[in-house]
Design a protein around this nucleic acid. Structure first.
Lengths: 315, 315
DNA sequence: AATTCTCTTGATACCGGTAACAGAATCTCT
DNA sequence: AGAGATTCTGTTACCGGTATCAAGAGAATT
């Protein structure tokens, strides 16, 4: 293994100089920097993460908490994870995944928490390392999120522009902010056009949404649009409309939310509010690393604008 | 932060003794062990992973390579990851996720590799740390896998027992061992009953499978069963049969493979060959950690028996 | 020209563990 | 009882980095 010392000898400097070239390059003359860099390249030097961690009183570990009651196998999380993991790798950090099952709590340099709910606030405050939430919150904790309200507003506007007359909102029956925001986006646009909002909520399972359509099929006039709070619900709606013989998208439209994986499984392919989750995961990671570098300084929030991807489930 | 030294003082011993209590308890008298343990508990001692790693010339990092050309957002991988991550946490290891995008290659103590193909063998051999494959291989590399052949054999047997006369295999058009094994399981059972195997292959997308059914609908007699190499394909088959007005499960049966997430999305719910991926991930991790502890000694392989979960897509 | 200041580099100690060796205490055996 | 073997515990050095302080060179100030 190549160490700082090896590089230092090769470049005829002290290892302290090499360390400086890496961490405080502005303190070293260009001449030496060049020497050191070429020595590093020649020897293919890789810093020893453990040594660095020890010296800095760090761990180089970030923990990701997935607190949701929801299904952790949702493709959503995998995308988030990819975004986070890739960014961590770049900065020589590694990852520990924590779910409600295993709550060991070894040390770490920071936390990313997703699925945060109000009741979690108390114990989260006790965490000693910097943390960033993935998902909005009203406690002033730094976060990254999608503009949920904008997402459903886009969807609703689009539905109205395309001439759907009856717009229903199919929500997730869960007490979380993202859901309120999505409903609000829908409600606002409905009111703007003097329409009466109609919201129905289910557990996030395609079957429940499908069952609802089946039971109430007679009540849905033609030219209805179902704006859903997840692609998973949208899939159920779509499936049952087809089974009842409804024509998608002419007589009935469906719009999903997420755009991660299920939108591709659906047929006809779903018009959906797409979140760039991988990118958001990366941003979240960067925010956290910056926060670590700045003694836990406040970072504020970053909200991503979702995009309405128009496919075959709306006219 | 509580260190070994703090514990040592509290227990009136040297820190070496504390270290031994943790790593070589057989070398310490019971008397002292008790003292040290109670001191550790009282101070809530947590070992410093970085220091341990540095002293042992380790990293406490395991890398997970996902090499598949296939969609990394498949829920499949998330389950694998959960299994691996939970087990790593228990042993104070952390994780780095490596995909073909980011190939940084910092040091680590071991590798878990999934999506291995024959062409990968060469560079995999050059890896210096112990490795375990997730998925069978013929190079003698340690691995964990599902008994793929058994899985499709179970499915095929079940189909025949339930009286389906025409059994088709819908495979994934990919040059990997798991696919050959799945096809072999089907073929063997077909031959056992003097039936002629019929295999069609597609890229692993529900749409392609659906399109195939649509185009050839006239050719499928009633009482046909479609045994699929993935739930994703099965969903496409199911969807199109329904659209054509076929009766599931009376006239047409569908069996999927994986049992991770999509089987729940399908309607009617899929009969599927279920793999216990979380558990397999945990096993894989343990195999790797044991291998690391035993100077890279050969561990052989562990094959998990899949289970046929019977639901509503077969009679 | 002497003093002070700035800039750059090096020597040292330390982060929190562990292996290897050394020393003390106990046990065995003649 | 004394020599040697056996247990058990402590001392020391080291893993590969980084912060801190000290020292030397050169520039700026008086």
């Amino acid at each position: 293994m190549i160490t700082l010392n090896d590089v230092a000898k090769k470049a005829n400097v002290s290892k302290m100089t090499v360390s400086r070239v890496i961490n405080h390059p502005e303190q070293v003359t260009d001449e030496l920097k060049r020497l050191v860099f070429s020595a590093m390249k020649e020897l293919n030097y890789r810093p020893n993460v453990a040594a660095k961690a020890l010296a800095n009183n760090r761990t180089q570990i970030i923990k990701l908490f997935i607190l949701e009651k929801m299904d952790t196998t949702e493709p959503y999380y995998m995308n988030l994870l990819m975004g986070i993991a890739q960014e961590l790798d770049k900065h020589h950090y590694s990852l520990q995944l924590v779910t409600k099952n295993a709550f060991d709590i070894g040390a770490c340099d920071g936390y990313i928490i997703t699925g945060f709910r109000n009741t979690d606030f108390e114990w989260i405050q006790k965490l000693e390392a910097p943390l960033v939430l993935f998902g909005e919150n009203s406690y002033g904790v730094d976060y990254v999120d999608t503009d949920n309200q904008l997402g459903t507003a886009l969807a609703t506007e689009h539905g109205i522009q395309r001439g759907y007359e009856h717009l229903y909102f199919i929500g997730i029956d869960i007490d979380e902010r993202f859901e309120f925001s999505r409903e609000a986006g829908y409600v606002n646009v409905m009111q703007k056009y003097d329409k009466v909002p109609q919201i129905i909520r289910f557990e996030n399972r395609s079957r429940f949404a499908a069952a609802y359509i089946q039971e109430n099929w007679a009540e849905f006039p033609k030219n209805s649009l179902f704006i859903c709070s997840s692609d998973r619900l949208a899939i159920g709606i779509e499936r049952e409309i087809l089974r009842q013989g409804g024509a998608i998208p002419q007589d009935f439209g469906v719009i999903g939310f997420d755009g991660v994986f299920l939108d591709q499984i659906a047929a006809p392919q779903l018009t959906t509010v797409k979140q760039t989750i991988v990118e958001m995961g990366a941003t979240c990671t960067n925010m956290l690393l910056r926060k670590i570098g700045q003694q836990n300084a406040k970072q504020g929030f970053k909200v991503f604008k979702p995009e309405l991807v128009i496919r075959q489930s709306t006219k």
